[in-house]
Simulated scan of single mutants.
Amino acid sequence: MDRSSDALTLAPPWIAACVIVQMLWTKNFFADFNERLKTVPFVAGDEFSVADITTFVTVDFAAGGMKMNIPTAFDALQAWYGKVSDRASSKA
């Protein structure tokens, strides 16, 4: 049995609403960053920066904590995530 769906079902309605809003925000976040990464190799432009680190952590949290992986249709975001994941510093 999936405990996350049980928890959401048993949660007060305002918590369930917050979760739904957060999931919608995350979908929009993925879409926005996918569009951005179609035009530049890294979040803030041509160089890897703290913006990439922050975005990487956010995507990891969405994938792990919220069970929301990057949709396969977001190819630019998928490619960026793979490139950043391959960096030695992301494995520390």
Rank of each mutant, 00 (worst) to 15 (best):
M66P: 07
S4I: 13
V40E: 07
A63F: 04
K38P: 02
N34V: 00
P41R: 09
D86H: 10
L10S: 09
P13Y: 03
A63M: 09
E47R: 08
Q78T: 12
S5C: 08
M66D: 08
L77N: 07
D60A: 04
D52Y: 10
V84W: 09
K27Q: 12
S85N: 10
A63S: 14
F74C: 04
F48G: 06
V59I: 15
G65Q: 06
F56I: 11
A31K: 12
M68S: 08
S89H: 13
S85D: 05
T72G: 12
A44W: 02
M23F: 02
L37T: 03
A16M: 00
T54V: 15
T55S: 13
Q78H: 11
V19E: 05
F74L: 11
W80K: 15
V57P: 13
I20N: 13
A11Q: 06
Q22L: 14
K38G: 04
V43S: 10
K83V: 14
F29K: 03
V50A: 12
Q22E: 14
D6S: 02
N28M: 07
C18K: 14
K91P: 08
A79Q: 08
W14L: 01
F42Q: 05
S5W: 06
N28Q: 13
V59W: 11
A79R: 09
C18M: 12
S89P: 12
E35Q: 09
